[in-house]
């Protein structure tokens, strides 16, 4: 049967055609196709990997941001409290200082009043002594102002009066 006998001519041409097409494809087609498929697969793999990493990083960053925000809020609160405390302290201090000052002023005033009083008393005493002597002079028609004993007596009497008061 002709079909089962290899035909020389056909074998020859088949060999030629197959080797030529093998050479052409092996040189120009398959390396390009295989390389491209592999490159694209790698590209896609890397894209996926990159996306995954980016997502992870985003999550991390989000956590960090939350942390930062919480920290900031805490710090803000703390600083507010600090300010409040400082304010209170300042006011307290001012108040204390003011009261100390006031007390001092009061004391000074007291002192000056006492002084004035004492001076006034002395003045009055002198005046009263003088007046008394003048009155007594008038009564006695005699000059008593030169008499030391009289002056002493008056002083004594005034002392008594004062101590009575």
């Amino acid at each position: 049967m002709a079909l089962f006998k290899p035909e020389f001519g056909l074998v020859f041409w088949m060999l030629v055609v197959f080797l030529i097409i093998l050479a052409i494809l092996a040189k120009y087609a398959w390396p390009v196709i295989i390389r491209s498929i592999e490159q694209r697969a790698e590209f896609i793999d890397q894209g996926v990997k990159y996306t995954r990493e980016a997502k992870q990083r985003l999550e991390e960053v989000e956590v960090q941001v939350q942390q930062l925000l919480a920290d900031a809020r805490k710090k803000q609160l703390e600083s507010l409290q600090e300010t409040e405390r400082m304010r209170q302290e300042l006011i307290e201090n001012a108040r204390k200082q003011a009261s100390v000052e006031a007390e001092k002023l009061m004391q000074d005033a007291h002192l000056s009043i006492e002084q004035a009083k004492r001076e006034a008393e002395l003045q009055i005493r002198k005046q009263v002594g003088h007046l008394s002597l003048e009155i007594a002079e008038k009564l006695l028609r005699q000059d008593l102002s030169q008499d030391v004993a009289q002056v002493e007596l008056i002083g004594k009497m005034l002392d008594e009066l004062e101590s009575k008061n």
């Binding site: 035909e7 020389f8 001519g9 041409w13 088949m14 055609v17 097409i21 494809l25 087609a29 196709i33």
Partner: peptide, 27 residues
């Protein structure tokens, strides 16, 4: 000795051509 371009040989050429026509657009 018979190296005739028979029907099968022509079909082989056509197949080779079709194969190139299928693959080279992809390249």
């Amino acid at each position: 000795w018979d190296l005739s371009m028979t029907k099968n040989v022509l079909a082989l050429f056509i197949c080779a051509f079709v194969l190139c026509w299928l693959l080279f657009p992809l390249v």
